[in-house]
Design a protein around this nucleic acid. Structure first.
Lengths: 186, 186
DNA sequence: GTCTATATTAAGATAGAC
DNA sequence: GTCTATCTTAATATAGAC
C-alpha cells in the first residue's frame, strides 16, 4: 500500500473511461499504464490476468454502480415518478449528457473473455429488471412492463449510438425526458 | 484481372461481415486475408492504404447499399406504408433478423481515419433524411417528421445493441413491426 | 508494490519473384 | 495480380532490481 500512486477505485474509473471510448480491442496496456500513471508491470501485479482481468474488474464495478444508482433508487422511497427522475439525472451524469458511450454496448463487441460477455449480459438484465419492477408497481401488466422496460433500454442505447455517430445529443436529451412517462404512466 | 480469385464485391461483403462483428480494431489484415483467400500483400495491392482504405471502401459500399435499398424505395412508387414495409424487409435481411450488428454503429467507435468517421455520419444522415421525407409526405410537420425519423433510427440501433448484449432479438422484431406506423401515421 | 529491462508474439507494411 | 519472404513496430507478458 506504501508506494501506490493511484487507488484501485481511481484506476478502474480511468480504465472504464478508456474502454467505453475505444472498446476492448482499441485499448492497449500501454494506454492503460500511461493514463493511470503506472507501468505495465505494475498492472500485471494488480491484475495478473492482464487486460482480460482489468476489463472484467471494470465490468464488475459498473454492475455495482448500476445496482447502487439504478436498482436501489428505483426500489426505494418516494413516488415512482420522482424515483425515475432521480435515476435519469444519474444516468445523464454517468453518460456526460450523451457524449460518452455505454460501456456495456461497446464492450459487447467480441474481444474479451466469455466471463466478460456473461457479466455484461447480467448487468443489462438486472438494469432491465429494475425498470420492469417499477413499471409493474405503476399498474402495468408483467408483459406490458417488460415491453416498456425494453423500450426504455432500446431508446437509451440507441440514442447514445446516434450521439456517437452524429455528434449530436439532442435525441439522447429527448429520450431522458421521455423515461418517466415511459416507465410510470399506465 | 487474370488470377483474381475473389471479386471486389465479394471481398467487400466478406470484409463488411468482419468489421460489423469485430469492429475496426478487432479485425487484422491476417483475418481479412484468411477470410477472403488472398494474401496480405495482395490486399495492399488492391488497397495501398491498408486497413484504413479497406474499411473506407466497406463504408462506401454500405452507403451505396443504403441509397439503393432505403432511400430509393422510400422515394419510389406505391403507398408510403407499402414502401416502408418493403424497406423493413430489406433491413431485416441485411441485419439477419437482428443477429448482426450495424456496421455504422460498430465502426463509429474511434479507430479508423477521419474520413471513415465523416462517411459514417453522412450515411446515417442520408438514411435519416429518407425517413424524414416519407414522414413529411404523410402529413407530419418538418419538426415532427424529424423526431419520428430519429426515433425510428434510435429504436433500430438500440434494439440491435440489446440483441448483441442479451442474445435476444425480440426487441428488434418489435421495432421492425413498429416502423410503418412510426413513419407514416400522422 | 512499483520500477526497468527484456522476451515473445503478432500486427501493419514493403520488396521482389512469378 | 498474387505470391513468399522479410522488415519494423507495437502488443502482451515476465524477470528481477529496488
Amino acid at each position: 500500500m506504501a508506494n501506490r500512486i493511484i487507488t484501485d477505485e481511481a484506476f478502474l474509473i480511468t480504465a472504464l473511461d478508456l474502454f467505453r471510448t475505444y472498446g476492448f480491442e482499441g485499448v492497449s496496456l500501454k494506454q492503460l499504464a500511461d493514463a493511470t500513471g503506472l507501468e505495465k508491470a505494475s498492472l500485471y501485479y494488480r491484475y495478473p490476468g492482464g487486460k482480460d482481468e482489468i476489463v472484467l474488474a471494470v465490468a464488475t464495478a459498473v454492475s455495482q454502480w448500476l445496482e447502487t444508482n439504478i436498482a436501489a433508487p428505483l426500489a426505494g422511497p418516494g413516488t415512482p415518478r420522482k424515483r425515475v427522475a432521480c435515476v435519469v439525472e444519474r444516468l445523464r451524469e454517468l453518460y456526460c449528457g450523451g457524449t460518452k458511450s455505454c460501456v456495456i454496448d461497446v464492450l459487447s463487441i467480441p474481444g474479451g473473455s466469455p466471463e466478460l460477455k456473461t457479466g455484461l449480459k447480467a448487468a443489462m438484465q438486472s438494469w432491465l429488471n429494475a425498470y420492469v419492477e417499477i413499471a409493474k408497481e405503476c399498474g402495468l401488466t408483467p408483459v406490458q412492463a417488460r415491453h416498456r422496460a425494453e423500450e426504455a433500454m432500446v431508446r437509451f442505447e440507441g440514442s447514445l449510438v446516434l450521439a456517437r455517430v452524429l455528434g449530436d445529443t439532442s435525441a439522447f436529451d429527448r429520450t431522458l425526458k421521455l423515461l418517466p412517462d415511459l416507465l410510470t404512466v399506465a
